[in-house]
Design a protein around this nucleic acid. Structure first.
Lengths: 241, 241
DNA sequence: CGTCTGGTTGATCTAGATCAACAGGAGTGG
DNA sequence: CCACTCCTGTTGATCTAGATCAACCAGACG
């Protein structure tokens, strides 16, 4: 059974199938052993919090399975979901490197197994492995590119385009993870969360879902998504960009 | 006279007053000499283009004086001004490090002197100086923080709040550069550009300026800005965040 | 002198927010 | 088993910030 403490204990970095995609890909054997020895793999359930906005950094978190949401709260308590982190993603590295407080919260969105790595271990590894530093640089540059893209889309795309685009991203992630028929996949988040991601209200999300169904673009029932005509969707996004 | 080729020729990295704030702050003497020998300081006028979106990287650009706008064009030709680069800022480093094409264009917004540094020199310096790599990492993390902030503001602040906030940022930059009376300063860009920065149309900008004047928050005539009551402005921004 | 660019003003339109009511599970407790 | 309450989602009515379209103005500049 996944998501139990017992299952977590037997996980090792050495034969972690996701390692290739993480910052830890090029660690040498002894470095990998150090990482494995001190990482703590833990099961989490939806609603758990890895860290809160403005907390001091307490390590980096490597997502092994499940889904993590990075959320920002403003002074009025309104939240927006900035992005999600999938298996293979490392979160919390920014405030670790900047030695600053977290600018956003990390919350578990679906049952997950996360490896927690303490700051001191990452520091040790950074001293040993020059490649690790480069990996973090790369990660930061990629995140910056993505953030810029999201900023541009938030400003110049319609809610519908942002919605369809987000669905396409989910589709890629889901099919990469489970190699399913890519015209059918499940939403990894509730519609409310999805609404918060693309920056509209749940009510607007509801109407949007109805509209795209009427237009024959996307059919959604419950969490299941079906794309009857992928080209039609691609066309829509073409116009937007 | 500033902004002439002659003026540019006598500029040296060694006694550049801005160096402290740049990535090149901690270079050793021989590294600094290498940089100085190969940097090319050039005058630019408004409308000049340092690089275009999707161009391959051709070096990094260190702003010595003036103002550079980083702009994104979508498929329909609509542009949005993503941010501005001020004296001491380095632009074009992202695509250099990622060895990818530029995701945005860099255009001169006011007469500027820019030092152009070829990729091969930066590569050499990166090999010699481990600190330089760290500086770039830091820069990338800061840009990421800023981009995230702008994204959040674009999504959850009103146009008025974004406008006031941008004015406050300009105020800081202007008074830092010229140590003027901080309640009076000049807009570094046209109102159209400002509108493009905060994500509204020029018409909306015009009305916004009138509104804040009526409310006694900010007075603008031509390029001159006057803040009669800074606390009032701060209060407005307090509510927004 | 006409033409361009930057800015202003007014009239109208619209995407999406807001407010309010309601419906269908999924627990939970008696 | 029913009653109760969450929680997610749906629908309708209304409101509003800001876009869009169109006309116009003032200064710069060949």
């Amino acid at each position: 059974m996944k998501h139990t403490s017992e299952y977590c204990k037997q996980l090792t970095c050495q034969n972690c199938s996701l390692r290739e995609r993480t910052e830890w890909a090029n660690l040498k054997e002894d470095e990998l052993n150090l990482l494995n020895k001190h990482k703590v793999a833990k099961p989490f359930v939806s609603g758990d919090v890895l860290f809160n906005q403005q907390d001091v950094n307490s390590g980096v978190y490597c997502v092994h399975s499940g889904l993590v949401g990075l959320r920002h709260y403003d002074a009025g308590g309104n939240a927006i979901l900035i992005k999600t982190a999938n298996p293979g993603d490392t979160v919390g590295y920014r405030s670790f490197l900047k030695k600053s407080n977290h600018s956003i919260s990390a919350e578990i969105l679906s049952p997950s197994v996360i490896c927690v790595i303490s700051p001191s271990i990452v520091r040790q590894l950074l001293k040993k492995s020059p490649d690790l530093g480069l990996r973090f640089l790369e990660h930061s540059l990629n995140d910056l590119d993505e953030m810029e893209k999201r900023y541009i889309q938030a400003r110049s795309w319609s809610a519908k385009s942002r919605f369809l685009h987000t669905l396409m991203v989910f589709r890629e992630q889901e099919s990469a993870a489970y190699a399913k028929d890519s015209m059918h996949f499940d939403l990894p988040v509730t519609r409310q969360e999805l609404a918060s991601m693309i920056g509209i209200t749940p009510e607007a999300m509801s109407r949007l879902v109805r509209n795209v169904k009427d237009e024959g673009l996307v059919e959604i029932s419950g969490r299941q998504v079906h794309i009857p005509d992928i080209d039609k969707v691609a066309d829509q996004l073409q116009l937007a960009s």
